[in-house]
Design a binder for these strands. Structure first.
Length: 131
DNA sequence: GCCAACGTTGGC
DNA sequence: GCCAACGTTGGC
């Protein structure tokens, strides 16, 4: 899940414990939340437009998608804080790491705010973030 | 601040 | 249904 840290950071999530992930206004991203995200799924928390941009920590889906009250076309999930990495796993690092060649976020023009991650990719990023 | 890579909108 | 114009995202 991607967000600009000026809008919401891993520190904000740590402080809040859980947060509602609403406001997504892209159909593909919505469908990922609705169809793919299940309670207990781990989430790579990605800071975009940051210095450096990259994965800053981990979250977990604590509530599956429900329609937004004001605009039921769209859905929100709830995520909870899991951990903040001791250092950001930068996009540069992601791009340079073997095994992440196909990770969506490393692709050019990858703007979706919700992106699928494979188990293999997840494990590699966690290893990078915690070492 | 620039600009590539989209997604959306609306005229036709 | 096509596509130009426009808006947004986000790396750099």
């Amino acid at each position: 899940m991607k967000v600009e840290p000026a809008a919401y950071s891993i520190d904000d999530l740590k402080r809040d414990g859980t947060t509602r992930w609403d406001g997504v206004r892209n159909y593909q991203a919505r469908n990922f939340m609705r169809d793919e995200m299940r309670a207990g799924d781990r989430v790579l928390f990605y800071a975009s437009n940051a210095e450096p941009s990259g994965v800053t920590g981990l979250a977990e889906v604590s509530r599956e998608a429900v329609p937004e009250k004001k605009d039921p076309t769209w859905v929100m999930v709830e995520i909870k804080f899991v951990k903040k990495f001791p250092h950001t796993v930068s996009l540069e690092t992601l791009k340079a790491t073997k095994g992440l060649e196909n990770m969506v976020v490393t692709k050019k023009g990858s703007r979706l705010s919700i992106q699928p991650v494979t188990k293999g990719e997840y494990d590699i990023v966690v290893k990078l973030g915690t070492m």
